[in-house]
Amino acid sequence: MDRVTGPAATAPRAVPPVAHQAPTAPAAASSGVHATARLVARRDGRGGTSLPVLESDGPLALRRTRGDGDEARVVLVGAMSGPLGGDRFAVRANVEEGARLRLTSAAATIALPGQAGGDAHYDVRVRVGDGARLRWLPEPLISARGSDLRVTTRVDVAPTATLVLREEQVLGRVGEEPGRLAGRLVLRVGARLVLDQEVACGPGAPGGWDGPAVLAGHRALGQLLVVRPSFAERPPAARLLGETACMVPLAGPAVLVTALAPDGLRLRRVLDSALAELG
């Protein structure tokens, strides 16, 4: 599988880096690539969804594909490898009132070590407005040996909106030790904080990360987060999806599937069956 073997850790970037200095970047930041992709989905008034803002930036390319009914579809295409150490990637998406959007990605994202050194950050912020629906289903994030990446995903969802969001982390390519990876996922529904979860793993992470309380040797970890207004009244009951996966109602109108698996393929199988049921 291409997306598992991926580019070699030392491969040059496929496209020369174009530095897009984010205005908020700290002065002391390293010389990595700074890129922010932006996306706004809006009801077009004819029963569909338009994309008045669709801004690619450097390695983050957004492509509109054929939609389905009232749903606009966007694919995030990595136009070069990375993030590499020192890079600062960001995605900002706003799904406005009543709009429908599905976002996927063309391939896995592979965190690699960089010449610039230091850690890389990938920061995703998403807003889903009243009555809107967002399905955010990117391919996995693979943490290659020697990489050091912090991923933060903050999602604000209106109480009348629907969200389906999948995150998958694969620790190392086939047979490879992982890099260091820290991921934080924060969900607010209206004003209420519903989920704030951070997982840190790989060399340099706090002790016990691969032990019996945390990952116990599993190399793929995933979450499926579903927010739906009807869950406020009738949340699905907690249940097990095998020995290392479960579906639980959160303290709010949301359900979280947490799954561990030996590899990315088996992880996807568990999340796909949960998605078919909840999505």
Partner: peptide
Amino acid sequence: LPAASAPLLEIGAEV
């Protein structure tokens, strides 16, 4: 505040 989580503690509690 920190939000560090342990997936197997969560899953194990449900088991």
